[in-house]
Simulated scan of single mutants.
Amino acid sequence: MNCYECAIQGLTAEAVAVCHLCGAAVCTDHVRTESVQLREAANPGKVIHDRPARRLTCVVCSAAEESR
């Protein structure tokens, strides 16, 4: 699978991830990574997991989230 962002620019690059929000395939140049805390009712009194999770997004979705 190839990177969607590269494809719309007329380039070809192998995708390494899929955007968590829109599902677009992205290459290493167009993927954005962030750490997030998972929240759920795990045990009584504990709603946050100890280790952060990884969340991958494309440049478009990342920019949209930052503009809020």
Rank of each mutant, 00 (worst) to 15 (best):
H20L: 08
N43A: 13
E34Y: 01
L21C: 04
C6P: 03
N43G: 07
C58T: 04
S35G: 09
H49Y: 08
D29A: 09
D50Q: 12
P44Q: 10
L56F: 08
R55D: 10
V16D: 05
G45T: 11
Y4G: 05
A24K: 10
Q9E: 15
L11D: 11
G10A: 09
H20R: 10
M1C: 08
V59P: 00
V31S: 09
A25V: 01
E65P: 00
C61N: 04
L11H: 10
E40H: 06
A13D: 07
V47R: 15
V18M: 02
T57M: 11
A17S: 14
H30C: 11
I48M: 13
A41F: 10
R51P: 00
V47W: 10
Q37T: 14
H20D: 15
L21P: 00
H20A: 13
T33R: 09
C19A: 10
H20V: 02
H20M: 09
H49A: 15
G23L: 02
V59G: 01
P52H: 01
V59Q: 08
L38D: 10
G10R: 01
E34C: 09
H30E: 02
T57P: 00
V47I: 15
A7H: 10
V60E: 05
T28W: 00
P44S: 12
A13P: 00
I48Q: 11
N2P: 00
Y4Q: 09
G23R: 03
R39Q: 12
E40Q: 07
G45I: 11
E34A: 13
C27S: 08
H30A: 06
V16A: 10
Y4F: 15
A25N: 07
S67H: 09
S35Y: 06
T57I: 08
G10N: 05
P44V: 13
V59S: 12
K46Y: 01
V16C: 12
C3E: 01
